[in-house]
Design a protein around this nucleic acid. Structure first.
Lengths: 140, 140
DNA sequence: CCTTGAAGCTACAGTCACTGTAGATCGTAT
DNA sequence: ATACGATCTACAGTGACTGTAGCTTCAAGG
């Protein structure tokens, strides 16, 4: 029988079998053809679609955004400005997350190093630092 | 009546009322005293505990880790080495996430700028870039 | 003292993006 | 023909909350 099984699709895209079925249920993938026995069989178009979804997910788009992107792809006239908008706002989010994580990193490393070098059994400041938000260098 | 209401606690710590009750259900906060009518009343110790939880959550610890940290705090003898270990592994996670987000940022900004400057109505590359993982500069 | 309205109560369903389970059926290599 | 891995459906569970419905309680003003 021609077509890829769900397992083959999974192997090629790195998306788990259960997740593929979940995407189908969410309407992100079309209902695929079936064998006489009822197993899913996919063509290359579905593979490409799934790769698109996986890629967008890895870039941090949530499933609603992915659905939107897919809809845009299928719009016959040019709606790419919207895709641009979506990607741009995603970029802003990512930059914001990086900034916040960097402050986090500073704080955590401060907490951890407050304790480095103490001989075992000596009191260390990890728990205190955690308890005392006032000592933080940055807001969060 | 002495003691803070749940709402007062919420205001002071920034943790939502429903979330405080959720923490209680999870065993992170002790069962507080109650008024005759059954409303929760908290003392300062509970406030401190809740602040500790909130702070640890903001630093990205999950609730299991927070519970562990609390247990360590209550250990009579010195178990701070373990707290140190937990914080250190959190720090490693945070650094890893920053690294991955940075690659993401590069990729997204590449995608977005591939389209900047095109006059409206011209085809742009956002959707293509999203569909074509092969064009990515980094793995993900 | 009594009313009123905000704040609190419990219990449970819903969120997101999956993951895991049970128990049955299918497909294919030998 | 048989064995065994792959697939099927349906549903429960995850984490960390959030939201809802339908009550009861508290504290302040009149």
């Amino acid at each position: 029988m021609q077509g890829h099984s769900i397992g083959a699709l999974s192997k090629r895209t790195g998306v788990k079998v259960t997740t593929i079925r979940y995407y189908e249920g969410r309407g992100l993938l079309p209902d695929p053809g079936r064998t006489d026995g009822g197993q899913r069989r996919y063509g290359d178009a579905e593979m490409d679609r799934l790769s698109f979804i996986a890629h967008a997910r890895q870039l941090g788009f949530d499933l609603d955004a992915v659905a939107e992107l897919i809809a845009l792809q299928e719009t016959p006239f040019d709606a790419h400005g919207e895709a641009h908008l979506i990607a741009t706002s995603r970029l802003a989010e990512v930059r914001d997350r990086i900034e916040r994580l960097r402050r986090l990193e500073g704080e955590l490393s401060r907490i951890v190093s407050a304790c480095d070098g103490h001989p075992d059994g000596q009191p260390c400041r990890v728990l205190n630092a955690l308890a005392d938000h006032g000592a933080c260098e940055h807001e969060h």
